[in-house]
Design a protein around this nucleic acid. Sequence first.
RNA 1: GCCGCAGUAGCUCAGCCGGUAGAGCAACGCAUUCGUAAUGCGUAGGUCGGGGGUUCGAAUCCCUCCUGCGGCACCA
Length: 636
Amino acid sequence: MRLTLPDGSVRAFDGPATGRNLASSISKGLAKQAVAVEVDGALADLDRPIARDAKVRLVKAGDPEALPLLRHDCAHVMAEAVQDLFPGTQVTIGPAIENGFYYDFARDEPFSTDDLARIEARMAEIVKADKPFRREEVSREEARRRFADTGEGYKLELLDAIPEGEPVTLYHQGDWFDLCRGPHGPSTGRIGAFKLTKVAGAYWRGDAKNAQLQRIYGTAFASEKDLKAYLARIEEAERRDHRRIGREMDLFHVQEEAPGCVFWHAKGWTLWRAVEDYVRRRLDRAGYAEVKTPQLVDKVLWEKSGHAALFGSDMFFLEADEKRTYALKPMNCPCHVQVFNQHQHSYRELPLRMAEFGSCHRNEPSGALHGIMRVRAFTQDDAHIFCTEDQITGETQAFCDLLLSVYRDFGFTDVRIKFSDRPAVRAGDDAVWDQAEGALWDAIRATGLDVILNPGEGAFYGPKLEFVLRDAIGRDWQCGTLQVDIVLPERLGASYIGQDGAKHRPVMLHRAILGSLERFIGVLIEHYAGRLPLWLAPVQAVVATVTNEADAYALEVVQRLQAAGVRAVADTRADKIGYKVREHALAKVPLLFAVGAREAEAKSVSLRRLGSQAQESLSLDDALALCQRDTMPPDA
RNA sequence: GCCGCAGUAGCUCAGCCGGUAGAGCAACGCAUUCGUAAUGCGUAGGUCGGGGGUUCGAAUCCCUCCUGCGGCACCA
């Protein structure tokens, strides 16, 4: 039997060999380091016999492929520790995830944070005991018998879900075993460094209708150093938290009386306006016409549109009048159709692009609220494109171009696109969905961009593209969207006159680039850790005096800056320049001009940029030119 | 909405076993006029998340509601 290594060399064995055999045949060191083997691209246990000729690669402890394996090992160790310490607890599932692993347990009593320390201690013993992981293939009946013996009802359910014909495998470590597909590392002793991080509730099989289990999260790394680096990353994320920075920079607040609603302070609103003004210019140039529609609309319209039936549980209704029920709009689309319907349209007017910075209210579940990222009152950079089916492709392409260019201007270059197709609860029949999904697929294929399928996640009225951007520390945020809708124009009677003189239904494309301004601004804050690019910074420049003798000059500088369109303020307090430098640096002001007697005399300024210790002396005129240039929005 | 945890001054937190609230920073006032990350002194600030209960007495114990946080579910 011949095993081909990544370097092209071939090792021959008489009969089946394992990864461990292969490793020992190469070197002692490799045999020690190897934790798994990749056979024709699939990971396998080191002791799994390889029965056929294959391309193989040994995976070593520090390799990236080893990490999920190690974490899964750690999940098993945790499960053993938990069952040791808390008899009667049932195990369910325990996968490796992006930054670690979890295991869901069924136990009436919740785990406390104190329990985590106990569990960790027991885990350390299991790791120290260095128990080998052993794979055992068993018949269904055998597996059923064993899990029935141990009282593992959830495992029995999982067993039933394994497709006929697939092998049923158990993994043992000492006396403890679990139903598991594998693969695993060689032994518990190979888990480098681990830590349990949090306890949480989680539904069995991710369904809110099922029982709630107790989930314990943990993380594991090949070395203590990697674990430390990870924990430092978590701390960095906490430092960037938009809720903390929003308070520190005096941008906004939320308070008990208005859960999920943002109080924007002057500085935060300045940032908002910079964002909104920029998007407005981009939309203007891209052929959109901006409108503004009511927030309070009779329930009757939402019944017609289908929102009341399919989205009603997320809507706020109010009886302000004894005869009528109103709703706060959760979306802008039905209102835009009302605007569209005020005139008879010709095919010549299509595509008609109607934009609105639309204030929407949705009664989000209380547990979903999160700072300004997930709120109940938000503003979408929304637009609806009324077009013909033939125009879907062109409009989608133009939209993708616009969106990517806008994201680039805000400093985001890593964007993923998801295609969400028909959800279980939806309006419109299957033929309509076939048509809408087909059109959107054609359109996105035409852009040549990479797309990931996101099954069953479409809007109730149509399939959608979701644009997910990745921030500076690798977190994903869903912002933009494009949705094809053939249902709403029908329901609300939108039409245009075609070339043939007959009435036709337009297609509606719902689209947003930022998504909600609240969320997008939150993402911006975290992406930049509050150190916003100049064009977005609420205060772009502070002119601070060294002594009060320079006050008059400082005010003159500020005035000139403001006249040049720069958001500048003076700091003429009777404090030391060092104090002022510190304070404005903490407030994340990008440009700090210090002026004293020297500068007043010479009509110059001393510039210090945020994040730099360096001082630059330049003439007032040069400073004005520099500010004017550097504070310019990227589209100007 | 569900599970768990938390809510004391603007912020970060102390205040364990019930005896009537404290620190640092911020704020404000006065003095200081100073050259690039903290000048000094002083002052003010809290129905201890809301309501109910137990008690002679509750920030502290119990119940309940609200809000937040971490997950889950849901989602822009």
